[in-house]
Write a protein that binds this DNA or RNA. Sequence first.
DNA 1: GTCTATAGTGCGATAGAC
DNA 2: GTCTATCGCACTATAGAC
Lengths: 188, 188
Amino acid sequence: MGRWEPDALGRLRAAALDLFVERGYEQTTVADIAERAGLTARTFFRYFPDKREVLFQGSERLQQAMVDALLTAPPKAAAMEAVAAAIESAGQYFGDIREFARRRRDVIAANAELRERELIKLAALSGALADALVQRGAAAVDARLAAEAGIVVFRMAFEQWIADQERRGYGTIANDLLRRLGDLAQRV
Amino acid sequence: MGRWEPDALGRLRAAALDLFVERGYEQTTVADIAERAGLTARTFFRYFPDKREVLFQGSERLQQAMVDALLTAPPKAAAMEAVAAAIESAGQYFGDIREFARRRRDVIAANAELRERELIKLAALSGALADALVQRGAAAVDARLAAEAGIVVFRMAFEQWIADQERRGYGTIANDLLRRLGDLAQRV
DNA sequence: GTCTATAGTGCGATAGAC
DNA sequence: GTCTATCGCACTATAGAC
């Protein structure tokens, strides 16, 4: 056994989400989180650049999976078909995280700072997808449009998937939204 | 002449943008801004809830104009046509603000906190458009999809309009993007 | 208009593992 | 000895409370 308890990062994450649910994000100090995890505030900032990031760190793997799916889609596929493949590929990560995602969603929904952070993470994802579309040969403007539209569908599909009464799978929801967006955008 | 110099709000805004351009957002303290405007930091926080907001306050009128345009579009118009009317209506506000908008854009692009704030303002706008679409009788999901797609086009059109080499007008750019999005989204 | 709590940073000390 | 995770302390600026 080492000098310290293992998995400081995981303990900080768990302590943070628990405390945010219990007493709210703003009412929880970094010192509170660290204390519950058996650490100090100084150590918290070794793992996370700021307080919000404790709820968001770890999205890099998802982003990479979506970019990979986009790049490995058939070369002849239209931009939006490649984006659809990326959206679908995200489903692998959504196994049994529904309860976790619901608690996290409630915390984020209750705080403007956290909603801001969520939006910028999605914007980064959109940028990565757009870059990948350009790699596939898409024009810059089309790449950005398709990526942004894909992010809209991705975000709404995930939200709907974790909604309390929802029965359908993530992939089904995403496909439905993609088709509806196609129908809507066509009639300008 | 009154006891105080007039237009404290305008002076704070101008001082803030100037300082952000000169030395960067993070390197500028609220005390710096207030001093240049001939005021105190305490007064700054009477006008703006936080430091970032000095660059964003004032978008309510634009939002109201877009919502109004959406609601007064022909009742038989499709959701995306109403959204297109809203996007077009924003053009009234984009008279001779290009130089201001460029300086503001550069400041925001250089700072993650400011990009976050910009995104949440656009999310609020999207929510307002979606609510208005529901008022017009659209289904909730379609309303959100159309509003989010509209925000994508609105944001990209504005960015392109203030781009250095751009010659076309805002409305032309927005219409082009709307059509391109329609083409892309159709091929899923 | 002052006073205070908290976020976040820089630098260095410590205590083990190896 | 070196390496590394953690802690301690001093400090600034934002933001809100009184």
